[in-house]
Design a protein around this nucleic acid. Structure first.
Lengths: 149, 149
DNA sequence: TATTGTTATACTCTATAACTATA
DNA sequence: TATAGTTATAGAGTATAACAATA
């Protein structure tokens, strides 16, 4: 059972990712959200007047997918679309007060789930893991240096 | 841009997982394989006379998905199905010599891709990352202690 | 002529249920 | 009656292309 592939850092990284994804989905489902919707709230909450195009770049999703995604959040009163007066093709997305409340609750829930997921690690291991992930992923998450994904 | 959620260990873990998944898919595509097929070769190569049911448990996939998965590998001569004489409902899956060659090449390719992916980390960080992943995931990968996934 | 947002369509993947052959 | 494998069908999710409004 000590197959080198199955105990490699890469494979374990894939497995950790999918397991955590499952956990987060279950956690957010209790709030009626999914991970994608939480990210929309996060980005609209931290960046003003985001267009749907910009959002699609942030999320790494096709712009056509953004439509239904924003539709539902707007129907639930968590974000609003406003025509950009400077370029009337664009929608400016804004989070609502209600959206901020839901976002805050979701962030707390995710933090709790993360704590549970990382529980097998001691404090030093947790910090080492996070440091390694930051080092590895920062150059690959272009919005941190101003771009995609 | 220093949004706490987007720089959390959990989110970066998800991102690392999907990025690595994309890299592995591209890497294996050059060999005409995908990650799932590589795992089938890995499990049939290390465990004798695996049934499709057992394989479905190992992979965490519905048994109905296994059919087409094994079909294609069998068509390409990488694994074979043999009726289990002790229970003629069962198929015993066996990797072929050709399958072992393809498997070995794929494992080498994945190792190279992993090295590239972890390149931003120094040796100590890489070991810390792998240790943390092993600690975190070993109790969650039941076949390591004899079960699912 | 190009771009934003939108809609419609086709394709892939998966889950569910039903079938067969064996037990 | 239950199980291993298989097949068929329906649903979710996605990508592609086409369209309207605006630039």
């Amino acid at each position: 059972m000590a197959d080198p592939l199955l105990t490699s850092a890469g494979y374990l990284l894939l497995k950790a990712g999918t397991h955590f994804h499952t956990l987060i989905d279950a956690t957010l489902a209790e709030l009626g959200l999914n991970g994608r919707q939480l990210l929309v709230l996060t980005f609209t909450g931290s960046e003003d007047d985001l267009s749907q195009q910009m959002l699609s770049v942030r999320l790494g999703l096709d712009p056509t997918i953004i439509v239904a995604l924003v539709d539902e959040l707007e129907d639930r009163g968590l974000v609003v679309r406003e025509r950009d007066p400077d370029d009337r093709r664009r929608h400016r997305l804004r989070i609502t007060a209600k959206g901020r409340k839901v976002h805050a609750a979701a962030v707390r829930a995710v933090a709790t789930a993360e704590k549970e997921f990382l529980a097998p690690l001691d404090r030093g291991d947790r910090e080492a893991l996070r440091d390694a992930l930051v080092t590895m992923m920062t150059p690959r998450l272009p919005w941190m240096s101003g771009g995609t994904d």
